[in-house]
Amino acid sequence: MAHTTTLHRKRGFIHWVTELDRILRGETTSLASMRKGMLELPVAGLIVVLLGLASIYGFCMAFFGLFNHAGAAGVQQLFASMVKVPMLFALTLVVTFPSLYVFNALVGSRLTLRSLTRLLVAAMAVLLAVLASFGPIVAFFSVTTTSHPFIMLLNVLFCAIAGFLGMAFLLQTLHRMTLTEREATPAPPALPASDAKPQAAEESADAQVIDGAQAMDDSAQTTEASDAKQQDAELDAALTEPQSALDPIEGRVLDQHVRTVFRCWVIAFALVGSQMSWVLRPFIGKPGEDFVLFSPRESSFFEAVWNALRGLLGG
């Protein structure tokens, strides 16, 4: 029984990692997959994998503190960073998610709470997979260099690269979700003018003319709308399946609503994420300083990056 349980759990974790691989390969977000329904993801399982990936990156980051601090301080920094990096991304997501959902709804998006959750989890999967893949390089430089500004900027650079790729994935997936949702929504039936019910004889002639004209206008507009939907459907049917998760849909301009949502989310996530990293610091620990779980609140992330750049350039 215990062996069966262990086997089941092992299969579960392998399944989650396989799903992560499918996200990276673009299979989960392919047009063919998304036409079957909403983004299919084992959200809870993926979150476990993402926390693991974030911990791995935290482990690699903390090598700087481990090799530049005497005694137990380095080990304390290692464990603290392994917890803080997942916390950073989780808290940033929790803070930005409600406003993202509301902005989405305000601009007319039909994405439900569930769809949005899955979309963000998938985007975070891409971000953290890329970030974790840079972990060995960060660990190497953390071990071999004693310059705190250099390591800080290196981590900022890799986080920026991972963030950029995660945003690109979010953008393309959001676009594909919008397209497939539009395909799934049936066009309203057109009302031919010849089927309009004849007006009652006791109505005035003017009212008859106005009503008749109004009915013709409405039917014309509905016909136009259904024609547009039909054209879109024909265009969508001719869509080329993109080769990767980051490829744009050829021949289709990004929907303006999607652009608006994207801008809101990028700005919010970047600002909140960078300031959250400042609040949760230190992640790598300064040489010569004692271990502290959280540094005092002073200055800001952007000022710190600027000072690090100046320090490196000898200013």
């Binding site: 691989d21 990276l24 390969r25 673009g26 891409v126 997979a129 890329v130 974790a132 893949s133 840079f134 972990g135 060995p136 390089i137 190497f140 790729l165 994935f169 993109p242 080769q243 990767s244 998760a245 980051l246 490829d247």
Partner: peptide
């Protein structure tokens, strides 16, 4: 060896 993990992930992401 140090560049291999990121080479693998980026190759996957780019299809």
């Amino acid at each position: 060896a140090l560049t291999l993990p990121s080479f693998f992930v980026l190759n996957t992401l780019l299809g």
